[in-house]
Structures are given as structure tokens and as C-alpha cells.
Design a protein around this nucleic acid. Structure first.
Lengths: 136, 136
DNA sequence: GTGCCAGATAGAGTGCGCTCGAGGTCAAGA
DNA sequence: TCTTGACCTCGAGCGCACTCTATCTGGCAC
């Protein structure tokens, strides 16, 4: 029989607050939660792994609604697995684009830093180097 | 005399809505806006460049409050320039860390995709490859 | 039995960043 | 002169993701 624990322990292991974990469940983001005789939520180590994934999905900008859809497919078992794979693949691609956007923005900001450096050291306002490329 | 235009034109050139531009101004994010005889806001091409910067700062997660602080230093002129430089440098560094976090999250998700690929093709649930490194 | 803690529910409140609507003014063109 | 459209102010409303409060219950230690 695998290890079982309650919400306080899951909170400690996952770093999310107890309130947030309960709220996630209310939002349909916590598949496979059972209850003990006293009505208390019971978790297993899979839930820690699950929250690590949720963490990464949130960090990369997936909305709670999208994670809810993902969690629905988790509950489907075998039949849902190809969908899970596809959702993650689409999201990884999306994240790649986000990283590219951040990189572009960062280099824009770095050009601005050089602009200030020039301005401060020469005392003359430099020309704006070039127009940023328009978004397609 | 440089080109001057009104809010509709700035909206068109910057891609922000008229409401948002006015809201930015109310939040202290729009330095150097003047008014014509009829009380209408008058902008110059510098404001388009300014909104391009604001765009990149927002995209990279700078809060409106932080941009407000930045805009205050813009209004100080020469004396504020070193602070502007430093704020941007700190934010570029922060953005570098964000990009790293996204990369880590993306590769976590990609490991999960391979996990599903294995599971789907072999029919056997693979072991979780390794624990993600704890954040320091 | 009495404390006390961990856990439960329901629902209100918060912070952020817009977004929109109502109602009014002003200037140019027919 | 009348209409039209772009602009104005003020303030309410919204969507998201929590976050917190109030109040109640179950179970173990003493």
C-alpha cells in the first residue's frame, strides 16, 4: 500500500498553501483525491508530482481553465493519454514562442541600456538605432 | 516643429486602445503629454517609442507600479538618466532569469511528453525519470 | 471530560490590469 | 445651422487567480 497523507503534508511537499490546494480541487484541477473516514482529503505521492506539473504549466502561462481541461483527460485514463500528449506538445511549442518574445524584448531593453550609456557618457542624446521589426 | 497628433492616431500607431492610453496616463505612465486649445491630448513620435518600451516592459513582467517609478525618473531629465539605466539593467537581468525558468519548465514538460509517448507506444507506464532539482 | 490541532465548508475579499459605458464638449464639413 | 465624429471626464465593472475569514467537526493526548 503506497504512502498516503493529508492536506497539510501535501502543502509542505508542494509548496502551495492549503487554501490553494483546496481551491485547485474546487476548480477541477486535482484528479484522484479520496477521503478518509472523517471526511479528510487523502493524497499520494502522485499528487506531489501532479502539482509539480501544474506548477510548470502555470509558470509557463497556462490558464486554470486549460489545466482543468487537461485534468479532465487525466481522469479518462488510457483513452485520454494521446490528448494529454498533444496538449503538452502544443503548450511546449507555445512556451518556445513566449521565450522568443522575451528574448526579443530583452534585447530591446538592452539596446535602450546602451542608448542611456551613450547619452550619459557623451552628454549627447544618441539617435534611436533602428525601428523594431513589426509583428506579422 | 515636430509632428504632433492626437490620441486616436497614437492608438493606431501603438496598438493600444484609446481607453488604455488614457488609463496609462492616469496611472502616471505617460510623461510629457500636452493639451491643445480644446483640451485634447497632444502626442509626438516620442510617445510611440515610449509605448514600445512600455510594451516590452509589460511583456517581460514589469508591473505598472514599477513603470510608474521609471516614468518619474524620465521626468527628472538628465539627473534621472543613471537611474533609468540601472532600472533597465536590473530588469534585463530579471528577464534573463525568467527566460531560464521558462526553459526549465519547458524541458520538464518535454520530459512529460516523452513519458506519454513511451506509455502510449509500449502500453506500460514508464518510471518517472528523475526528480527535478530543488530550487535553491 | 477537556483541550487542542488539523481539517472541513461556504463565501467574501484582494490586487492587478485593464475595459467599458454614460453623458458631455468642441470643431470642421455639408 | 446642423450633423458628425473625435475627443473629454468620471466612475463602474470585469476576469483571473488566488487568499482569507468565520464557523464547525473529528480525533487524539492528558
Amino acid at each position: 500500500m503506497p504512502e498516503a497523507f493529508r492536506i497539510g503534508e501535501l502543502s509542505r511537499r508542494s509548496g502551495r498553501s492549503i487554501h490553494t490546494i483546496r481551491w485547485y480541487e474546487a476548480q477541477g484541477l486535482m484528479p484522484g483525491v479520496t477521503r478518509d473516514a472523517g471526511g479528510r482529503r487523502v493524497y499520494a505521492s502522485d499528487h506531489v508530482i501532479w502539482l509539480e506539473l501544474v506548477d510548470r504549466l502555470r509558470l509557463t502561462g497556462m490558464s486554470v481553465a486549460e489545466i482543468r481541461a487537461y485534468a479532465r483527460h487525466v481522469r479518462e485514463g488510457r483513452a485520454g493519454r494521446p490528448r494529454l500528449r498533444d496538449i503538452l506538445a502544443a503548450h511546449a511549442a507555445e512556451t518556445g514562442r513566449r521565450i522568443e518574445d522575451l528574448r526579443e524584448a530583452k534585447s530591446f531593453i538592452e539596446r535602450k541600456i546602451r542608448f542611456y550609456d551613450d547619452w550619459i557618457t557623451t552628454g549627447v542624446r544618441p539617435a534611436i538605432p533602428k525601428r523594431p521589426k513589426p509583428r506579422p
